[in-house]
């Protein structure tokens, strides 16, 4: 149940995490894992990241690091930013609609 819900919104949470600047994979996944409902096996996010890259919502580049191997940073593209804005605009009415049906005595 929780996983079905998560599936629909996870990509927008990822886009939102990239809103304020690039993040590399390990960092991005650790950030997601900090919020319990969004926590999932980290490796399952890579196919999602691959799709975001393929559909042009996110972009990646390698950047050298002071310690260890270079990191692959994910950045939001313009298309990704507008997809996120659209979701952000629609989310409140979606959330209200669900609340409306869930609230006792209001479904008549």
């Amino acid at each position: 149940m929780a996983s079905q819900l998560r599936k629909g919104v996870l990509e927008y949470c990822v886009l939102a995490l990239l809103r304020d600047g690039p993040r590399y994979g390990v960092e991005l996944l650790a950030e997601l894992a900090r919020v319990e409902v969004m926590a999932t096996s980290q490796g399952t996010i890579y196919p999602l990241l691959s799709r975001l890259r393929r559909t042009g919502l996110a972009d990646t580049h390698l950047q050298e690091s002071e310690s260890g191997p270079p990191r692959r940073y994910y950045t939001l593209t313009d298309a990704g930013r507008s997809a996120l804005e659209e979701f952000t605009a629609n989310w409140p009415s979606f959330r209200n609609a669900v609340d409306h049906f869930l609230a006792p005595g209001e479904t008549t």
Binding site: G43, G68, R72
Partner: peptide, 20 residues
């Protein structure tokens, strides 16, 4: 292509996570 990409992503993740 998708399979190679997934494996490359996981390899990078493991390298970075262990380096950290």
């Amino acid at each position: 292509a998708r399979r190679q990409e997934l494996l490359a992503d996981l390899r990078e993740h493991i390298e970075v996570a262990l380096a950290e």
